[in-house]
């Protein structure tokens, strides 16, 4: 008993004089040899998969179930979204290069590539903001002679009553205050609700990633990013690639399925 007490006191003394490593977790002994933080990041990404999985499942359950337009085929512009998708994919590559640079100890290379990754991320976000704006302000324009020919979308056809005597073209539908009535907002229909929620949460993930990348960029000027601490970059890269992969799924399920005929109808 006395011996035990002595041990406790000794322990307390050791505690006070604890000799510690600056970044203990990076170099600590672990059972598997994997770093704690890296394992945490993988576990988090697994969890985030379920998060996006549930959002995508919701989107798919409601796909084609909207009672009023506009519908995906009225809004999506595959060429424009392909460009932003391409930019995001390229950002993954520059992320790889940033990590490779820091592994080689090239701080300059790291700064160039991490900044370009962040910029490409911001470009993607700009595209998304533009797209949201466009969708919210979508207007229908069609020639009344096209009504019933099969050249108009279901949404446009739903405005055929506008083609009254003397009207040859429909240029947008507005209420008495001049507000556009054909835009897509989260309140419009199930498509708007699920589309904005899904892509909005992805956009929030990208935004978080950009803040993280920029933090690393600025931190590197204060000596915070070094070859020995490449794990900090590695973790950001893991996150960034994940967000990128999720976008590929969203692009396929939401945009491509939404526009091309022949893709599965729910």
């Amino acid at each position: 008993m006395i011996q035990m007490k002595a041990k406790v006191i000794k322990g307390a003394r050791i505690l006070q004089e604890a000799v510690t490593t600056q970044h203990g977790t990076d170099h600590e002994y672990t059972t598997t040899g994997l770093n704690h933080r890296k394992l945490l990041m993988w576990a988090f990404l697994g969890s985030d998969c379920m998060f996006f999985g549930s959002l995508i499942a919701t989107y798919m359950v409601y796909y084609g179930k909207s009672k009023v337009g506009p519908f995906p085929e009225d809004l999506f512009s595959i060429p424009i979204t392909s460009v932003s998708t391409f930019v995001l994919l390229m950002s993954s590559m520059s992320m790889v290069l940033a990590y490779a640079a820091i592994r080689k100890g090239s701080l300059k290379g790291f700064r160039v590539w991490i900044l370009s990754t962040a910029l490409m991320g911001m470009t993607f976000l700009a595209f998304q903001v533009f797209e949201f704006y466009e969708f919210a302000n979508h207007e229908v324009h069609f020639d009344c002679s096209q009504v019933g020919t099969g050249n108009l979308s279901a949404f446009e056809e739903s405005f055929q009553n506008e083609c009254i005597e003397g009207v040859t073209t429909v240029d947008g539908i507005h209420d008495s205050d001049g507000n556009n009535l054909t835009g897509l907002t989260p309140k419009t229909n199930l498509f708007g609700t699920t589309f904005f929620t899904l892509t909005g949460f992805h956009g929030a993930h990208v935004t978080l990633g950009v803040i993280w990348l920029l933090s690393l960029f600025f931190y590197s000027f204060r000596g915070g990013v070094t070859r020995e601490r490449d794990l900090d970059v590695d973790l950001a890269a893991l996150y960034w690639h994940f967000v990128d992969i999720v976008w590929i799924v969203i692009f396929t399920v939401v945009y491509l399925f939404g526009v091309f005929p022949g893709f599965p109808e729910s």
Binding site: Y62, K65, S66, K67, N189, L190, G192, T193, T197
Partner: peptide
């Protein structure tokens, strides 16, 4: 929460919500 706060349609039966 979005349904309650922002008027989305996830569980809005009138808009086809399930």
């Amino acid at each position: 929460m979005f349904d309650r706060f922002f008027g989305t349609n996830f569980f809005n039966v009138g808009a086809g919500g399930q």
